[in-house]
Design a protein around this nucleic acid. Structure first.
Lengths: 137, 137, 137, 137
DNA sequence: GTGGTCTAGACCACA
DNA sequence: GTGGTCTAGACCACC
């Protein structure tokens, strides 16, 4: 009996306002951040993942290409796609500007959802505590 | 002589990947969250704001429509658009799910940008301290 | 009678080993470098250029997207694509490494084509003299 | 005891966008141009080089085939592959057209990377001075 | 087998 | 009208 690697836990919502290829990108980045995927791991082939998700191979290919451009994965023709080693391709300024924009978004939405200072703080801290960016899984 | 309210501080980047109407929405929500706009304040008319931003009136109208759908503003034909009182239109579950998704995004990006726990904590706390959701302006 | 902007002088060789979308990128960059296209100029629409070149609109769209990522052009949905102002998005190191690689290629090919030092020098200088990177056209 | 020739200094980047066999071709042409390999020198066998580079023997074989097609090397079954005498297989017109295309590319990229006339000149001259196409090694 | 490119044609979001 | 996304399916280059 053949051993099968577990399929990646990715869910696509074709009706979401955000494009499918972007959903794939975000979720793969999430799987890496949560250590489900580690540097060197092989990603499913374009065709395989497209079958699994029920989308067109082109759509998965596009997601992989964007991930490669961001330096998140490496792909080699005839071989496959692999999770890359974490390397920073952006300047310190871009890095903090980008994070700043996300925090803008977070606080604005928190306001409109009427979060209190305490509620937001505790929600954030709970996540932060179980967040281990550097410890190996 | 007519008294003129200062123009809203909204900046449009026509080259951004995110649509102009969305940029308007985000920034109006941001102005409300930062207390520049308070409940009951009159928003500029569609025509006026479109002239100020140099965009098509349709684009501003679309932004106002979406804001009204979210319950952020109220518009009355022939009168104008006004900032609404903060009222929650979503269930407690939706509220926390939505916030959770934003935090997912925050931590995932923080990971790929190689933020340390400490760095992320201090960046968040700095923002939290100067955030006053309930105090009246 | 309607005034028609002259079509861009772009030639596609579908049999070339280099992809069509890349041929389009290279030639548009060439047209900008040679001042045929200046910052602010409107590029033909995706559909129009695809008809002119006899290729699929997707292929042109891909070329435009890559050019936008390189910061060479700006595109806005519903409006069109425009030549951007020259701005450098790469580090000094990347810049000189990239140029160095092109020179490697130049000298290696020159060797195998048996160019003499003098011949190569005069060919280069002839081009350099008529090269005006900053003078406005 | 057997005398061993030093291994060729060839570096493969499996993640580069350009195919591996092409990387081999370019670097062998470079080694010849820089006189590390001279006419008559024996190239490593396909198997040996493939082991050294950690790539598939087919990939090295393909590189050798293309080099032979270009007249750069000669291969004899059962004997091995040897660097050929420099012989021009192209017409004068093809030769100058090809060089012209490389210069097009050079100047276009220099423009977009915002090289000045002086900077480009000095970069070129520096390379030209240490370039000795005809002197025997 | 792998990923890369291209076509044909569709629908959507935007201005 | 514009560009953006997606599907269906094809062929190629590479390993």
């Amino acid at each position: 009996m053949k051993l099968k690697r577990a399929a990646l836990n990715i869910v696509i919502d074709p009706d979401a306002p955000i494009p499918i290829y972007m959903q794939i990108i975000i979720q793969i980045k999430g799987l890496i951040a949560s250590k489900v995927l580690a540097p060197g791991d092989k990603l499913p082939s374009v065709r395989k993942l497209s079958r699994q998700l029920g989308v067109n191979p082109n759509t998965v290919a596009r997601a992989y290409q964007e991930l490669e451009r961001e330096g998140i994965i490496r792909t080699t023709r005839g071989i496959g796609a692999f999770v890359g080693k974490p390397t920073l391709k952006v300047s310190a300024q871009q890095r903090s500007e980008f994070m700043s924009r996300i925090l803008d978004y977070l606080f604005t939405e928190a306001y409109h959802l009427q979060y209190s200072k305490e509620e937001l703080y505790s929600m954030f801290m709970q996540r932060l505590e179980q967040w281990n960016p550097d410890k190996s899984c």
